[in-house]
Nucleic acid binder design. Structure first.
Lengths: 188, 188
DNA sequence: TACAGATCAGACAATATTTGTTTAGTAAGT
DNA sequence: ACTTACTAAACAAATATTGTCTGATCTGTA
């Protein structure tokens, strides 16, 4: 996802910021209503462009969704990277923030929608989501290994806990609360 | 809405609690997705009955929506009535609680907004919403007139402020906070 | 001015979804 | 065995959505 993943391969250079802006609106709308209940009309309205204009940028609803998820993941990953690199905070706080940025942001209807689209088209969204996922695991592992000299197993356990939490919990607050407890327990 | 407003006039006495339960589920679903994006299938699933079973209780989606909003409003109005009648609290606190029950209950992103569902579908609800609305105004006016001997204009201003606030604010907390300030100013 | 790129609004056919109804069946109480 | 209160499955009709096309419109550039 680091390279823009051009859906409609456009030879013109000018449409750079436009796509990103549209993807932001799309992500907000998808996050609010879920994939199924979001229409292209609504995304277009949110992005304040016409529906045909939206199809000019993204050839289908699914493509748009993939791109939106991709951009969101990229952004989250960048945030995670920045947070973990900040030397001013204790490891525990950096980890909490990192997980919050990664998994906490879209707790709710979107999580299941992403899963559904993955099922529908495992190869395409699979790549989109698996690469950042592996990178996240790497970052967490590095942060823990560097700082406190613990094993890789610790990082993996933490990630598993976070995933489990996301399935149990229905709000970001609840997620964060229980995550803090878990991290304190694991980091002890 | 005090009388159950029987859609499918049922001569059998046994279906009393069932309707109310189904209406609760319906209200939750409508509040979450909005009228348009809620299907009868979803309401039925939420209420854990079959879709034909749902049509047996309510003859159309519109009727169901009206009944659900009606029940919610009845409930809120009863809470308002109880709060205002409580002699143990100063007028100011009773008013704050009353407004919170009436207008504040469904403000916010998490538990979606009944008031907005209502605003989005004014045509579907004429009578259903106007009567409780007038009754609420009456209750507030009475509370103020009885206790502090102020004019009707004061009550109306308070209600207008509350409505305006609801449109400006995005969380129940923010609504409450600003409402308190407004009531203190008005009641001075 | 003339042109090209990037839109837009409107309309369209092909699907998909939803509504409201009907059927046939079942489990529980009498 | 009969009634009440459902259910699941299927259906036609209405409505919504997708993806595409056409013919304008606006903007910047030559």
């Amino acid at each position: 996802m680091s390279s823009p993943e051009v859906d409609h391969p456009s030879p013109w250079p000018a449409d750079t910021g436009r796509r990103a802006t549209v993807l932001d609106s799309a992500m907000l709308t998808f996050a609010r209503f879920g994939y199924r209940k979001t229409s292209m009309e609504e995304v277009a309205r949110a992005a304040r462009i016409s529906r045909p204009g939206l199809y000019f940028l993204f050839s289908s609803k699914e493509t748009l969704f993939r791109a939106a998820v991709g951009q969101a993941l990229d952004r989250d990953l960048a945030a995670v990277e920045a947070v973990l690199a900040d030397p001013g905070k204790p490891l525990r706080d950096r980890l909490v923030e990192a997980f919050d940025n990664w998994a906490g942001r879209y707790v709710g209807p979107l999580t299941s929608d992403v899963a559904i689209v993955i099922d529908d088209n495992p190869d395409l969204l699979g790549e989109v989501i698996e690469t950042p996922r592996r990178r996240f695991e790497e970052l967490i592992t590095d942060a823990i290994a560097t700082e406190s000299d613990r094993e890789v197993a610790l990082a993996q356990t933490m990630i598993s806990t976070s995933i489990g939490l996301k399935h149990q919990v229905s709000s970001r607050e609840a997620y964060l609360e229980r995550l803090k407890v878990a991290i304190d327990l694991l980091l002890r």
